[in-house]
């Protein structure tokens, strides 16, 4: 994961904690965590990164980003 923006790495690390849940449940949990603890500029960057179609974001994190949008 080296080389990816830090917010991508962080989002993927959060997603890994919820990997045992269904993708939909995991995305909600990830989005809630990001919403309550991240600075707006990081959230915006994550959303933009997900919308760009970059593949470094885990599927659950990408889905969470869509919840945040």
């Amino acid at each position: 994961m080296s080389g990816v923006p830090s917010y991508v790495r962080l989002a993927n690390e959060i997603a890994a904690q919820f990997a045992h849940r269904s993708p939909a449940d995991a995305a909600v949990a990830i989005a809630n965590h990001v919403k309550t603890t991240w600075d707006p500029r990081m959230k915006r960057a994550l959303i933009a990164y997900a919308e760009s179609g970059a593949t470094d974001l885990s599927p659950a994190a990408a889905l969470a980003a869509r919840h945040l949008a």
Binding site: S6, Y7, T36, T37, W38, D39, P40, R41, M42
Partner: peptide, 18 residues
Amino acid sequence: NEPGLRIPNMFDAAIDGS
């Protein structure tokens, strides 16, 4: 009403220029 930067985020944002 939204959170601010944590310390590691501050470092990243400093390097990013914001």
